[in-house]
C-alpha cells in the first residue's frame, strides 16, 4: 500500500533467469509497500525457479503467449485481486524501480496512465538505429491520428489506474502492445503523462531486435495503430 492504494508491480519474464531475481529484489528494496507478480511467459530456462526464490507471486503460463498475453495476465490478476494501481516493469532490469513512487504519486494526482519515457528530457540512453526508427515512426503516427505527441511509444515501463487495469484485463493486444494501447488510451480522452526516466542497459542476455523483426514490427504496428482508430467505435 502506498498512500492507502494497493499497488501491484507486474514483471513479464521470458527467459530472464540471469536478471529476474535482481529485478524483483531491486523493486522490493526500493519499495517494500508494493506487491510484485512475475508472469513467467513459458520460459525455456530457469526463470520460473529463480522467480520462485524471491518474495514475488509467480504466475506460470504453460504456453509462451508473448509480451501482450503475459502483461494482460498480470492485469487480470490485478483486477481480480482489487489492486488500484498496476505498474509494468520489464524483466531485464532496464527500468529503475526508484521511479515507482513518483509514478504512483502521479496516478494519485489524477492521471490515468503514466509512461516512463526515455525521451521527454535528454537522457544518455543509447538506442539502436532500428529501434529509434520504429519509435519515431509510431510516435509520428500517433501524433497524426490523435494530435497528441507521445515520445517514447514503446516504453514498457507504465503505470495505470484501476479503470485502465479493467480495460486492459479485457482487451490487450498480443504482440507489440505498447504503441497501440498508448494510442487507445489517448483516444479515449484519458489523462496520460509521460514522465522522464533514465533507463539502464539490460543487465544480461540479449535484446530481441533484428532488422527483419524490425520490419515486421513496423508493418504490424502501423497496421494496428490505424485499425485501433476504427475499432474504438465498437467499445
Amino acid at each position: 500500500m502506498i498512500n492507502s492504494k494497493k499497488v501491484l508491480i507486474i514483471i513479464p519474464a521470458y527467459n530472464e533467469e540471469e536478471n529476474i531475481e535482481n529485478v524483483v529484489n531491486n523493486v522490493l528494496e526500493e519499495n517494500n509497500l508494493v506487491d510484485v507478480v512475475v508472469v513467467n511467459d513459458g520460459s525455456k530456462d530457469d526463470t520460473l525457479k529463480r522467480a520462485q526464490n524471491t518474495k514475488a507471486t509467480v504466475i506460470d503460463l504453460p504456453n509462451n503467449l508473448g509480451i501482450g498475453g503475459a502483461v494482460q495476465t498480470g492485469m487480470i490478476y490485478a483486477y481480480k485481486n482489487g489492486y488500484d494501481i498496476a505498474i509494468q516493469i520489464d524483466g531485464d532490469g532496464q527500468h529503475n524501480p526508484k521511479y515507482i513512487k513518483e509514478m504512483v504519486n502521479k496516478i494519485n494526482e489524477g492521471y490515468d496512465m503514466v509512461i516512463g519515457s526515455r525521451f521527454v528530457e535528454k537522457t544518455n540512453y543509447k538506442q539502436t538505429f532500428f529501434r529509434m526508427l520504429g519509435i519515431n515512426i509510431t510516435s509520428a503516427l500517433i501524433k497524426a491520428i490523435t494530435g497528441r505527441k507521445i515520445y517514447d511509444t514503446t516504453s514498457g515501463f507504465r503505470a495505470v489506474n484501476r479503470e485502465i487495469i479493467e480495460e486492459f484485463s479485457k482487451n490487450y493486444p498480443y504482440d507489440y502492445p505498447e504503441p497501440e494501447t498508448n494510442m487507445k488510451i489517448v483516444l479515449k480522452k484519458k489523462k496520460v503523462l509521460e514522465m522522464p526516466v533514465e533507463m539502464r542497459k539490460r543487465m544480461a542476455g540479449k535484446s530481441f531486435i533484428t532488422p527483419i523483426k524490425s520490419v515486421k514490427y513496423m508493418i504490424k504496428v502501423t497496421m494496428s495503430l490505424m485499425m485501433a482508430k476504427l475499432k474504438l467505435k465498437e467499445y
Binding site: 506460470d60 503460463l61 503467449l65
Partner: peptide, 10 residues
Amino acid sequence: LTQELAILKE
C-alpha cells in the same frame, strides 16, 4: 485459457 489456468495454478 492459458491465462486463467496460470492464475488458478498460482
